[in-house]
Design a protein around this nucleic acid. Structure first.
Lengths: 233, 233
DNA sequence: CATTGCAAAATTGTATACAATTCGTATACA
DNA sequence: TGTATACGAATTGTATACAATTTTGCAATG
């Protein structure tokens, strides 16, 4: 008899898993500001469990780059520096452009059609709720592209990267009114993919990632004088 | 006062760290065959510690893809499948070609000169010791290229990937007599980098990674009839 | 003979206690 | 005043005990 569980079993609902998810959410949404000091005992008290599950959660988040451990000081929410943002986008470009090219050669027409549906997302400017919803759907779109590459290892790495990059969008930066533009970009990308032009699709993806980075960079520069939680430890 | 420790502090010599390193080495060198079953208690006995440090080590190795956990069965050394090898090389190509291109634009002449020294490595065919030594130096060369990209995040991901791929070279496959050829490839790559031609260097790197993959693929196909620890769980 | 129920065994998850290490600070001393 | 040092506080690391969950073997039953 074959194990009835799906290939990648969903993690059991355990205390460690709970702390991991809650802490991750709180870090990504910047409820814990970059640079904030945490401690195993404090976290254990906060989340109502003991230090052991907290340790496990923190080690995972550390490996994902969201937490930084300083021995005998505690855990710290990894600071967001301009270089970290730049590095992340650079790595993302390297991986995601390849993912797009691979997806073009491997995805079925049906899958690309479905991807087109996922691309039809926007947000309304200065509407926070709509913006957060958009972020979630946008992540889903890019993860789907990654999945269509049919490369599990690539998917895992890109997934981790994209999730940790979500944090940048919660900085409260005024990126501007780009809902429609981004939707257009997404749909253009899918169009290139559906016409099975790997080169054009990859180039298109690279341009879009670059312009996304530029939007953040500009907003960051413009917000230079206000309170941005970019810490220098 | 600035913390006198280097930016990335070397991990303390702790029991968990010890188990992690030993287990990782044993997995990479295939002392633990792919598919082999391990268990927390067994490992704790083996390495002379308790289950807690073992758990931590296993979780890390799991995230790095070297271990697979099956609930209430134990940990298993991740099997090596043709698809896993293919996926890994694909991801490696995506990241390393970009690393090379970035290094070309960012490394100093001195750093590239030093890289040229690291490139001067060979192995003598059918000499296992020389081969293992070569593997280590070869990893060092590619890691140095990654470091010269000046992208910490890219470095971390590529580092993890390259280390886990070392396993493939311990399968006992007869890759053939390519010591001199690979040295030539390395030196050609460095030459392109020193002439600051990012495009040529990236293309060169991609070709070399592909040919490395082809060597493994051919050897794997040739060894199809003999005992290769490619497990299907 | 297949299926179900159940209890024992195995494994993982969690809490707690304690050991080990490091840091900060106060104090002694030159 | 500057420096060394010793001690206490804080933090992480480890072991052990126990609880929770799942698997497995076996027998009973249709």
């Amino acid at each position: 008899m074959i194990d009835p569980r799906p290939a990648s079993a969903p993690p059991r609902r355990t205390a460690a898993e709970g702390v991991y998810l809650a802490l991750k959410r709180d870090i990504i949404t910047l409820r814990h500001r970059p640079g904030a000091a945490l401690g195993e005992q404090t976290l254990a008290d906060t989340y109502g469990t003991s230090r052991v599950p907290v340790r496990e959660a923190c080690r995972r988040l550390q490996q994902e780059g969201l937490l930084t451990a300083i021995p005998y000081k505690g855990y710290f929410v990894s600071p967001i520096s301009p270089k970290e943002i730049s590095d992340s986008f650079e790595l993302r470009t390297a991986i995601e452009t390849r993912a797009v090219a691979l997806a073009v050669t491997r995805a079925t027409d049906g899958e690309l059609a479905r991807l087109g549906e996922l691309a039809a997302i926007e947000y309304t400017y200065s509407d926070w709720v709509s913006y957060v919803e958009f972020l979630d759907k946008n992540l889903g779109f890019h993860l789907e592209v990654a999945a269509l590459s049919r490369n599990d290892r690539l998917f895992a790495v890109l997934h981790n990267l994209l999730v940790s990059m979500q944090r940048y969008f919660f900085l409260g930066l005024d990126l501007g009114d780009f809902g429609a533009e981004m939707r257009g970009e997404h749909e253009l990308l899918v169009r290139h993919m559906r016409s099975r032009d790997a080169g054009a699709a990859a180039t298109c993806a690279e341009e879009q990632i670059t312009s996304s980075y530029e939007r953040i960079r500009r907003a960051l520069a413009a917000a230079d004088n206000i309170e941005i939680p970019i810490t220098e430890v």
